[in-house]
């Protein structure tokens, strides 16, 4: 149906000749943008609905008293479905630690939550294809699980700020039980919130994609930051860490880099560094973590991202 619409729009309404590059670019844009928008609305709605059944309080109970490893896997997976706003990082962290979620398990969640989410999945799927989207999610989970296990093994509980252990958590929390109607309404309003925020970025991303689709890509970056340059991944990650953006904002940039010939491993590593580690997040986490634990967190996750970048560049 979308193909028909795109055909009609490009060839009938605009009367563009089929063989021109500009025609192909416009056709791509008119087909891809509605496709991604539809996918985005559908997936965000479904995930938002699921989420009304798993509020943070329930996640906390699920993760408390879990064994290492099983707990790490569970925490990283739950991280996918939890939207992460840096402003929620501290209450979540304290809530987890207080209710006996092991530190390593808490970190698996903390790594996965900003890096992997449904919006990133849809956008990667729409712009780069299923293979890249699944790779990103799989690898993101792996980094979150392994980093959590390592931090757990290092037994760094004493490097959490002391006041965290002293905070008394009230138990009065929780909305009144939601009716199905409430859940649908809340999910729709969340879809609206996300859509307004993400839609412009997606349009930019698709426009870049359309441009590249229509015109042959110039391998500018491939020459300087291609596979042959052993420092490319390292530099991409080093640039990515201080930058702050959510997955949706960074996608157009990532697409442009990739289209200009940056290898996939380097591109994904850059995206993970931007979303998974960021300056504002560090500043906020510093309030609950002593410098040594914060540095360990950055180090472990950073090295994980580097390994992933090099591995993909080597394999793909």
């Amino acid at each position: 149906m979308l193909t028909l619409f795109a055909d009609w729009f490009t060839y009938t309404l605009l009367r563009l000749p089929k063989e021109r590059l500009i025609t192909q670019a416009i056709h791509f844009f008119v087909y891809d943008l509605p496709k991604i928008y539809l996918l985005l609305v559908a997936v965000v709605f479904v995930v938002a609905m699921l989420r009304t059944w798993i509020p943070p309080e329930k996640i906390k109970r699920l993760l408390a008293r879990r064994h290492q490893f099983v707990g790490n896997i569970l925490a990283a997976s739950l991280g996918i479905f939890t939207p992460f706003c840096t402003c929620s990082a501290i209450p979540m962290f304290i809530g987890f630690v207080e209710s006996g979620v092991p530190l390593g398990v808490t970190f698996s969640f903390l790594v996965a939550s900003p890096m992997i989410n449904e919006v990133a999945m849809v956008l990667l799927w729409g712009l780069f294809g299923a293979r890249v989207a699944l790779l990103y999610v799989g690898v993101g989970l792996l980094i979150a699980i392994v980093s959590g296990v390592i931090i757990g093994r290092l037994h760094m509980e004493k490097y959490v700020e002391d006041y965290v252990y002293k905070i008394k958590i009230g138990s009065a929390a929780g909305d009144a039980p939601l009716t199905l109607k409430n859940r649908v309404a809340a999910s729709w309003s969340y879809v609206g919130e996300i859509f307004r925020k993400v839609a412009p970025w997606v349009a930019v991303g698709v426009a870049i994609g359309a441009f590249i689709h229509g015109y042959a890509p110039e391998n500018f970056l491939a020459r300087y930051a291609g596979r042959d340059n052993p420092f490319a991944v390292l530099i991409a990650v080093a640039i990515g860490i201080p930058l702050y953006s959510n997955a949706e904002g960074v996608i157009p940039v990532v697409q442009a880099l990739w289209a200009k010939g940056l290898p996939l491993g380097t591109t994904l590593a850059f995206m993970m560094a931007v979303t998974g580690l960021s300056m504002p997040e560090m500043i906020i986490l510093r309030r609950v973590l002593k410098p040594r634990l914060l540095a360990t967190f950055i180090g472990v996750v950073g090295v994980g991202i580097l390994i992933v970048g090099y591995f993909f560049n080597w394999v793909l």
Binding site: P55, S88, M92, I94, E98, K168, A172, G174
Partner: peptide, 10 residues
């Protein structure tokens, strides 16, 4: 904030 038992803000 924690005294209210709230883990997700706002």
């Amino acid at each position: 904030i924690m005294a209210y038992g709230v883990m997700a803000t706002p």
